[in-house]
Design a protein around this nucleic acid. Structure first.
Lengths: 199, 199
DNA sequence: TTCCTTACTGACTCCCGAGTCAGCCTAACA
DNA sequence: TGTTAGGCTGACTCGGGAGTCAGTAAGGAA
C-alpha cells in the first residue's frame, strides 16, 4: 500500500477521519486513531495534513461537500417542487450515517474555531437556501402557497434542527415517527398543503 | 481565604466552572483554569470533586438548576398564561450569559457521557413541559386555542433551539430581532393568537 | 544507472494536563 | 492551650497524544 498519489490518499484519510469522528466524537478522536482506522502510520497523517486541526477542518469540509452534493442532486433533479420538498426533508432527517452526531460536535467546535465555523455555516446556509429555492419554484408553479419562502425554509429547517438534536442527544426522547410528523405538519402549514401530501 | 465550609466553596467552584466552560469551551477547560479563575489551587478542585469529569457534570447540573429555578418562577407566578408564554420565550432566548454556548457544548458531550446526558435531558424536558403546562392553562382559561399543547410546546422550543443554535454558532447569520419574530410567529400560529400579542 | 522526488514509516521527543501526596494552617472544642 | 478535623496547598508523578526526523522504497526522468 505504498506510493499512491496524494489525492487518492487524502480522500481515503478524510473519509476515514469522518468515520472516526462520528464514531468516537471529536473530543475523543486522536490522529493515531484515524491512522489506525485507515491502516497507515500516524506520521503519514502529519505528512499529508501538517496539523491535527487541519485534518479535522478538512474532514468536516469533506463531509459537508458530500451532503451538499446530495442536496444539489435533489434541487436540480426533474420533478414536482412538492416532491423535492419531501425529498429534501427526508435527506435532512437523522439517518444511519451518524452525520448528526458529527455536526452537533461541529457546531460546538465552530464556536471557537473560525475555520470550522465557515465550513459549518456554508452547509447550514445552503440547506436553507436549497429548501427556499424549491419552495419558490413550487409557488411559481402554483403547486402551493407561501408568502415568505425564505422565512419558511428557515423555520422548517430550524425546527428540524431542534427536533433532531433532541432525538440524537437524548435517546428515545421522541420517536422517529413523531419527529417526521411534526416536521411534516410545520411544513404543510407553511406551504398551505395537507401533511399527507408530504409523506 | 481559608477554611470556608465545604458547600460554600463547592458553590463558588461550580459557579466559576460554569463561567470558564462558557468562556473557553468545554474542550479547552482545564481543571487548572477553573482553579485559577476561582483563585484556589488546582489540588483543591480535586479535593472537592475527585475527578475532572465529576466537576464538569456537577457544573452542568448547577447551571441547569439555575435555569430551572427561573422557569419555575415564571410558571408559578401569578399572571395571565399568555404573558407567561411570553416570559418563558424571553427566558429561553439567547442572552448575555453564554448559557447557549455552554449547552451546545453540553449536547455534543452528552452523546458520549450518560451522566451529562441525564442532566441535559432533565433541563430540556422541563423547558418543554413548562411551556406545555402554561399553554394548557391558557387553553383551560379560554385565553387562546391549542389542540395539542404538548406537541405545540415541543415544536415551539425545538424551533427556538434550531434558530438559537444558528444565531449562536454563526455570528450575524440572523438578527436577534428576526429570531424573536420567527419564534413569536410560530407560537402565535400554535396558539391561534396574533404575533403582536406576544411582544 | 544514476539521481531526484514523493509517499511513507518506526521510533523517537516533549509537553501538557489529570491526578496524588505529604504536610500546613486555622477554627473549634475539650 | 493542646488536640484534632477538615479545608487547603506546593510540588510532585506519570501517561497520553501531538508533532518530528532520519531514513526506506519506488517510480520516473535524464
Amino acid at each position: 500500500m505504498t506510493g499512491r498519489t496524494a489525492d487518492v490518499r487524502l480522500d481515503a484519510l478524510l473519509s476515514t477521519a469522518c468515520e472516526v469522528i462520528a464514531r468516537r466524537g471529536l473530543a475523543n478522536t486522536r490522529t493515531a486513531d484515524v491512522a489506525a482506522a485507515a491502516g497507515v502510520s500516524q506520521a503519514l497523517v502529519f505528512y499529508h495534513f501538517e496539523t491535527k486541526d487541519n485534518l479535522l477542518v478538512r474532514a468536516f469540509a469533506y463531509a459537508a461537500d458530500q451532503e451538499l452534493a446530495r442536496v444539489e442532486t435533489v434541487v436540480r433533479s426533474p420533478g414536482a417542487p412538492l416532491d423535492k420538498v419531501r425529498r429534501i426533508l427526508k435527506l435532512y432527517g437523522p439517518n444511519t450515517t451518524k452525520a448528526w452526531e458529527m455536526w452537533i460536535d461541529g457546531w460546538a467546535e465552530s464556536i471557537r474555531v473560525p475555520e470550522l465555523e465557515k465550513v459549518s455555516r456554508r452547509l447550514d446556509v445552503r440547506w436553507k437556501e436549497a429548501l427556499a429555492e424549491v419552495i419558490r419554484a413550487g409557488v411559481a408553479a402554483g403547486d402551493f402557497r407561501c408568502a415568505d419562502p425564505h422565512g419558511a425554509a428557515w423555520r422548517i429547517t430550524a425546527l428540524a434542527d431542534g427536533l433532531t438534536v433532541q432525538a440524537t442527544v437524548h435517546d428515545r426522547i421522541i420517536s422517529r415517527r413523531q419527529l417526521a410528523e411534526w416536521i411534516r405538519l410545520a411544513t404543510a402549514r407553511e406551504l398551505a398543503v395537507r401533511p399527507e401530501q408530504l409523506v
